[in-house]
Simulated assay, not measured.
Amino acid sequence: MSYSAPSQITQRQLAYFEGKHVLIAGELIDDFPIELDKHCASTSIFTTNYAYYQQFSEHQSIKCHFGAELVEDTNADMILLYWPKAKAEAEYLLTMLLAKLGKDTEIVVVGENRSGVKSIEKMFADLGPINKFDSARRCSFYWGECTKNVPTFTLQDWFKEYQVQFKEHTIEVRSLPGVFSHGEFDKGSELLLQTLPSLRGHVLDFGCGAGVLGSVMKTLNPKIHLDMVDISALAIASSIETLKANGIEGNVFASDVYSNTKENYQFIVSNPPFHAGLKTHYSSTEELLKKAPQNLTHQGQLILVANSFLQYPPIIENAFGHCETLAKNNKFKIYSAQK
């Protein structure tokens, strides 16, 4: 079994988990929970990643929770936190999970050094002792214990609010930590919106993030039927709040690319992700492009924005037989293809 570097360093320290009820959270990408479950009293997972949730949802001995917040009861007495790429997301997860589990919870934090995992020392300082006990494969392994009373957690307090101006419209955006374009209007999304034609029929906003694209599209084209999907529960919660803040109707739901979507879209519009954690990752976008024709109606259209260096045109050409560049600047290009 091949594990990620953070899981490999955790595997070296299995003694910390003996007899514990362990709740795993954060940037977890492999099957290490199955290995860990052999050494714990029980193992459970909290994930904001829908694909990872699907992977473990039918597992017999490991309970997997998906959402922006852990609302189910748990008997966990230890948290194993895989440090995410965004420090703000790490703080969010830590605060939320400790508020759920309470005082006397043990915590293990593991992550790549370049991700800023050392920040846990300062972040945890007011909660109890935490120390680094191992270092390998450019990763660090911390163990600590929450010895102080934990502040209550209220999800609404974690939304960052900002405004996006587009043409004569003002969109109120509400975004949780770890969500793309958290606190700012992405320049790629702005170029995409400037380039979009008038929309009609069923429209899919793939990788909806904080809901900026979907909200602007529905504002400019109020008669469309809008679906907004993302793999991240934090993005789903953010988009729902953004729609609510602007009085906009839309269907927002989790989907691993097309796993939960329809097959009759007139438009698929996307500012697709190309990072998974700290690594560049293209597989979900490649699937989006390759399978777009079978998810579009007759003469349906795919429109997306991408960094100029990304080699998406050959994939689009292979799927549609052609690929047009509708607009470009020094950083982004807008690609389109019609079925």
Rank of each mutant, 00 (worst) to 15 (best):
V257A: 06
V257H: 10
V257I: 14
V257Q: 04
Y258Q: 06
Y258D: 02
S259C: 11
N260F: 06
N260C: 13
T261M: 09
T261S: 09
K262M: 08
E263I: 12
E263W: 06
E263N: 15
E263R: 15
N264C: 10
N264F: 06
N264R: 03
Q266L: 02
Q266T: 12
Q266N: 11
I268R: 14
V269R: 08
V269H: 04
V269K: 09
V269C: 11
P272C: 05
P273F: 14
F274S: 02
F274T: 00
F274H: 03
F274W: 07
F274A: 02
H275N: 11
H275L: 07
A276V: 11
A276S: 10
A276N: 12
A276H: 13
G277I: 05
G277N: 11
G277A: 10
G277F: 13
L278W: 07
L278A: 14
L278G: 14
L278F: 08
T280L: 06
T280G: 04
T280Q: 09
H281S: 02
H281R: 00
Y282E: 06
Y282P: 02
S283M: 02
S283W: 00
S283N: 02
S283V: 01
S284K: 02
S284H: 03
T285W: 07
T285M: 05
T285S: 15
T285H: 06
T285I: 13
T285E: 09
E286C: 11
E286F: 06
E287M: 13
E287L: 07
L288E: 10
L288V: 11
L289K: 14
L289T: 15
K290N: 10
K290T: 14
K290R: 15
K290L: 07
K290Q: 13
K290P: 01
K290W: 08
A292H: 10
A292M: 10
A292S: 15
A292K: 14
A292G: 14
P293Y: 11
Q294S: 15
Q294W: 01
Q294C: 03
N295S: 11
N295F: 11
L296E: 13
L296W: 04
T297K: 12
T297N: 13
T297D: 11
T297V: 15
T297M: 05
